[in-house]
Amino acid sequence: MDLIFTIAVGLLFAASLYMILHRHLFKLIVGLMVFGLASNLYVFAIGRLTREQSAIIPGDADVAFEPFADPVPQALILTAIVIGFGLQAFAIVLVKRLYQVSDSEDIDELKNTDKIDSTEK
């Protein structure tokens, strides 16, 4: 069962990087989101996997008995998902505004701020 996650994580990371490297604003944002998905999945998988038995203490017990899913990566990912949502929502809006302002979706054309002799004041 590790295999599925290994393949999925590798694939997602590869795809996200591929999209980020594409010079397109829209692809960039999608790539960043997939990157977030990939890292979440990575954290989930690396905390070892337990089938079906979730991290909830049954009503008739005082403690959780093994095997149960590791709640720690879950909590971490939950936090990471939420934070990621905030950042990604911001990024979407940023891309939208940037596209409005620069009127170009080609990221290669957005390099004015890096130039040594740019004409800004």
Binding site: V9, G10, L11, A14, Y18, A38, A45
Partner: peptide
């Protein structure tokens, strides 16, 4: 070039995961 780089990147991540697990 970017396909190559992406593939290597994905493979590296997957490899590290296998190693840790």
């Amino acid at each position: 070039a970017s396909i190559t780089l992406s593939t290597v990147f994905g493979a590296t991540m997957a490899y590290v995961m296998v190693m840790v697990r």
